[in-house]
Design a protein around this nucleic acid. Structure first.
Length: 301
RNA sequence: GGCGUCGUAGCUCAGUUGGUAGAGCAGAGGACUGAAAAUCCUUGUGUCACUGGUUCAACUCCAGUCGAUGCCA
């Protein structure tokens, strides 16, 4: 063990058991937990985001759970700043901290940093969205081709969000997006030990299906009903809620909505795995293999 | 028991006027820098139920068997 502070990162597909393992690690190393889960931030999203239970929150102090209102406009840059500040404070009294979550991009922002860009101009964003709807993606592509040919050459031209974001930055800053994307690691004062939790795909699917059944029993439908008036907020473009909104709008039967939640959660888990598999710093373990996880962390430190 | 319909990809089904087959869904793989539980891309070989027959050639026609289902008794 060195004097350099340590961030113990716990990642993995949804429902694999990150919450439990993170708590056990935090207890073992006598520290606290920072969440990196872009939906557990929102205090109104209770049942559908599989937040740690009150009992679990009692065992170990968690940060960034239920700290936002769904109306709040939030983004990864704000998270990077706030989470690093939180870590700095914790490092004054702790050698290590636990960072747990399923949002790969947020984990990366914390560990490596992201490029410095101005806060998004939401007015501009909605104008671009309108242009997409009225004039189609081709017109946005043409704009991008003119304003930033370098980025145009590498971006996924089928993905409207990518193109709109680039245009948004370019129009706001007057600088090509490709020039602003340095993609250099920001200096960090801590070491990062990445633990990936993994189970055979079939078991992950079973856990997901089971968890959705429990959410239904615990009243996610009622919660979705209360949130229904806010369904257009980004915070509610979330698996578990959007399918129930579709039911509440009368578009699909409840059983279909429930199945769609399971399907979309499975796909979410798959996307998470695609992201995390790319990260070669991650060492993979079964969520039940605590002994080896502890040993690996000690060795790493 | 009689008559009829059906049996094709994990599921729902299309199709082949006889030249060994294709959609949707599910699944799989991938991308990803301020919306990321978001957004987007790629991906379909399966004893065409089984056993025989006719044919140069059968998944397709014929017979039988098995299974499902409907109607009649």
């Amino acid at each position: 063990m060195t004097d350099t502070p340590l961030v113990i990162v716990v990642v993995g597909p949804t429902a694999v058991g990150k919450t439990k393992v993170a708590i056990q690690i935090a207890q073992q190393f006598q520290t606290e937990i920072i969440s990196a889960d872009s939906r557990q931030f929102y205090r109104q999203l209770q049942i559908g985001t599989a937040k740690p239970s009150p009992a679990e929150l009692n065992l170990v102090k968690h940060h960034f759970i239920g700290n936002l209102d769904i109306e709040q406009d939030y983004n990864i840059s704000k998270y990077e700043v706030e989470a690093l500040q939180c870590a700095d404070v914790l490092f004054k009294t702790h050698h290590s901290i636990v960072l747990v979550g399923g949002s790969g991009l947020y984990i990366d922002a914390f560990c490596k940093g992201i490029d410095v860009l101005p806060d998004p101009d939401l007015q501009l964003r909605s104008e671009l969205k309108e242009k997409l709807i009225n004039q189609g993606i081709e017109s946005l592509r043409l704009d991008l081709k003119t304003l930033d040919p370098d980025y145009y050459a590498t971006v996924d031209l089928a993905n409207p969000n990518r193109i709109m974001r680039a245009l948004e930055v370019i129009l706001q800053t007057g600088t090509p997006y490709s020039q602003l994307r340095k993609q250099q690691k920001a200096p960090r004062s801590f070491k990062v030990c990445k633990i990936g939790l993994m189970l055979p795909r079939e078991e992950i699917h079973d856990l997901i299906n089971h968890r959705v059944d429990i959410m239904m029993r615990n009243g996610i439908l009622k919660e979705a009903g209360q949130l229904f008036p806010h369904r257009h907020l980004n915070a509610l473009n979330t698996v578990g809620y959007k399918e129930l909104f579709s039911y509440l709008e009368g578009n699909i039967p409840l059983l279909k909505a429930k199945e769609a939640i399971k399907t979309n959660t499975r796909r979410y888990a798959k996307r998470q795995l695609t992201w995390f598999h790319k990260d070669k710093e991650i060492r993979w373990f079964s969520p039940f293999d605590l002994e080896n996880i502890f040993n690996y962390i000690k060795e790493f430190d």
